[in-house]
């Protein structure tokens, strides 16, 4: 069993108030450990994205407690949360969210710049990350010049900038064809094990499951299943 990196205790999130109040998460308690891939499954509206936002320090829950790397989030302000995200969390988005005016390596370099990596080392480190994801030869391309899979690899390289210990991926395969999507998930799986970071993937895609070490099931904002995956492709 790996060391718990993220701990959620009785987390609840409610949108709106009064008669229109909607409980997006109810009493979620779980731990996420380094070195494993956690797959978050559930139908639309089950609260997967909200849970990902809570895990990524983007949303403070109305109830319960979140502790990331030993730091409880409930007392932190917006800037402190941003600093915590910067230090610990890498995001991979469904639609890549690359900066369209920046080249592939510059997209990665911006994340390094945020982490205050010295300017003279940003280029080399960005290239190193892109090489690791097989994108070295596309480093000078703009996002518009890349395929969906290539964009997602650049996005993963950006998420890895500064070596975060938690990578949160929101539907990383949704905009990709089957083969490309599998390649992207395989990459995340390799990273979790090679870099010893925790990877949480939100997905509808059943092809992701074989790459998961653990599968969580959400329904109506409640955790309905939490099981270890057997025989994953690690």
């Amino acid at each position: 069993m790996s060391t718990p990196l993220l701990r959620l205790e009785g987390v609840g999130v409610t949108y709106g108030s009064g008669a229109t109040a909607l409980a997006a998460l109810v009493g979620i308690s779980l731990e996420i450990s380094a070195g494993e891939v956690t797959l978050l499954l559930g139908p639309s509206g089950s609260g997967k994205t909200t849970l990902l936002q809570v895990m990524g320090c983007l949303l403070r829950p109305g109830q319960g407690r979140v502790v990331l790397d030993g730091r409880p989030l409930e007392t932190l302000g917006a800037e402190a949360l941003a600093a915590l995200r910067l230090a610990h969390v890498g995001f991979v988005f469904q639609h890549y969210n690359l900066f369209p005016t920046l080249r592939a390596w510059e997209n990665v370099a911006v994340a390094l710049d945020l982490k205050q990596v010295p300017r003279n080392r940003q280029n080399a480190q960005a290239m190193h990350l892109l090489d690791k994801l097989g994108m070295g030869d596309r480093a000078s391309h703009f996002p518009a010049e890349l395929s969906g899979g290539q964009k997602q690899r650049v996005a993963i390289a950006r998420a890895l900038a500064g070596s975060p210990n938690l990578i949160l991926a929101d539907e990383p395969t949704a905009a990709l064809d089957g083969k490309t999507g599998q390649g992207v998930v395989a990459t995340l799986h390799d990273l979790a094990h090679r870099e010893n970071c925790a990877v949480v993937i939100v997905s509808h895609d059943p092809r992701v499951e074989p790459f998961a070490d653990r599968v969580l099931h959400l329904e109506d904002g409640r955790l309905t299943d939490d099981r270890r995956a057997a025989g994953n492709q690690a």
């Binding site: 941003a82 995200r85 969390v89 900066f99 994340a111």
Partner: peptide, 9 residues
Amino acid sequence: TLRAIGAPA
């Protein structure tokens, strides 16, 4: 996106 990945204001 910048804010989400941790950019300060």
